[in-house]
Design a protein around this nucleic acid. Structure first.
Length: 241
DNA sequence: TTCCGGGTAG
DNA sequence: CTACCAGGAA
């Protein structure tokens, strides 16, 4: 069994529910033994991570990659360039992302925000403390809670736990959270019961995505091969879906 | 709640 | 051929 960072192994900031932390780390290690290092977020710059996070909203990763590459080919993979570009030109680059008109508006809105409020310096914007930065991100058109946490974790390297549809589905099936839990409640639950470690949160979300994508599908989950089968109510026939 | 509305894996 | 994808706005 692999070991992770020291911070992730020491129950420093979360001694209210030591048993729950043990459970969450057990789940983590079972997934890591199965998938190894996922290496999220695959991108070569901070700006590319943010642009990709917006484009991938409810869109497949393969279609997102096409759009990022086209933006790069047209010199639009920076916020100064996006802020100056026409919406029509951006739309042409991100056509592969299903809601391409909405995506183009979102990219331009974020780029304009960085230019207007931070003189184009994304690094300065991301250097703010987590709470005010998260609040600022949520006020930008096109940035909801999941994308804000993607940006905080993968672009700003701050320990904000990302919740997505896979996370909710897997933990409901594990019997650890309600089916209708809110985004903010579930994020707070993870962050209250795990050490605030960027590498741990990064890997944890990436591993949940892998389990969700490969095993824990909405219908016909592949429980027999799932690394979490021994902890899961569905795999043990105790929960019908 | 509904709209958005390309692309591909199965 | 259908299902559904690293969501968010109105």
């Amino acid at each position: 069994m692999k070991t992770i960072s020291n911070a992730a192994n020491s129950p420093k900031h979360c001694d209210d529910h030591p048993n729950l932390q043990t459970t969450l780390m057990d789940i983590y290690h079972r997934m890591e033994d199965a998938f190894g290092d996922r290496g999220w977020w695959p991108a070569s710059s901070t700006e590319e991570i943010i642009i990709g996070a917006i484009l991938v909203q409810n869109v497949s990763w393969s279609n997102t990659v096409k759009a990022v590459e086209r933006l790069n080919d047209h010199g639009l993979l920076t916020f100064p360039a996006l802020a100056a570009a026409s919406v029509d030109d951006i739309e042409a680059c991100v056509y592969s992302t299903r809601f391409y008109k909405t995506k183009a508006k979102k990219l331009k809105a974020f780029a304009t925000h960085v230019m207007t409020h931070h003189k184009g310096r994304i690094d300065a914007m991301l250097a703010q403390p987590m709470a005010p930065l998260r609040a600022e991100l949520l006020q930008i058109y096109g940035i909801g809670p999941e994308t804000a946490d993607d940006i905080l974790l993968y672009a700003a390297n701050q320990a904000s736990f990302v919740i997505d549809a896979y996370t909710k589905r897997i933990f409901y099936r594990l019997g650890l959270t309600p089916a209708d839990i809110s985004y903010e409640s579930m994020r707070a639950w993870f962050m209250a019961n795990l050490p605030a470690d960027v590498s741990l949160f990064n890997q944890y979300h990436a591993l949940l995505d892998a389990v969700g994508h490969h095993f824990c599908s909405t219908k016909r989950p592949k429980c027999e091969a799932c690394p979490l089968r021994s902890k899961c109510l569905v795999a043990q026939g105790k929960l019908v879906i």
